[in-house]
């Protein structure tokens, strides 16, 4: 037997997209498993659509910045290599709940930077230069971190560590 409510009722209850479900027995177990699978699929689809939106944002930014002087001054164009690496970075973004989608910034140097921020002095910047290498700088209050890391076929663990530090600590 199962019941839906919007209150938390303790044991034998679960949460499905903000709705509390209570119950017992095999029917409940079956529903719980089904709902958990459905939740996971939903979250995956949600992440997928966020990544699609980010890819579209990248496309329009790169179009806007495809010629030298796009800033009305002397900015370098975003190169094909930087664009490809940025797409790869978005595709490899881990599906971890605490990691929000970043902002995308075109740099005058022709690079692309992904920015995560949690207030003015808690910021992580990850920059694509199109050479299978990404550089990062982070400000965590008064502490600062910077480095460069190889970017091959997996998302660099050091970026996840910094994201964890930014959003979880």
């Amino acid at each position: 037997m199962i019941a839906l409510s919007n209150s938390n009722t303790g044991n034998g209850s679960m949460n499905c997209r903000g709705l509390s479900i209570t119950g017992f027995g095999g029917e409940y177990e079956e529903y719980r498993r089904y709902s958990e699978d459905e939740n996971r699929a939903f979250e995956k689809a949600e992440t997928f659509s966020h990544k699609q939106a980010l890819l579209q944002q990248l496309d329009s930014l790169c179009k806007e910045c495809s010629e030298e002087g796009w800033d009305g001054d002397d900015a370098f164009a975003i190169s094909e290599d930087v664009y490809d690496e940025s797409r790869k970075f978005i595709r490899h973004l881990p599906d971890i709940s605490f990691i929000p989608m970043p902002d995308i910034i075109a740099e005058y140097s022709g690079e692309i930077t992904f920015e995560w921020s949690k207030g003015k002095r808690h910021v992580l910047l990850v920059t694509m230069c199109g050479k299978n290498e990404i550089s990062y700088v982070a400000l965590f209050g008064t502490n600062e971190v910077q480095g460069t890391v190889f970017f091959g076929d997996t998302f660099p663990p050091v970026i996840i560590e910094n994201l964890r530090r930014l959003f979880l600590l």
Binding site: D74, D103, I105, Y108, E115
Partner: peptide, 9 residues
């Protein structure tokens, strides 16, 4: 964003 203050080339 930081880009508001980045120097040009």
């Amino acid at each position: 964003k930081h880009s508001a203050f980045m120097p040009n080339n």
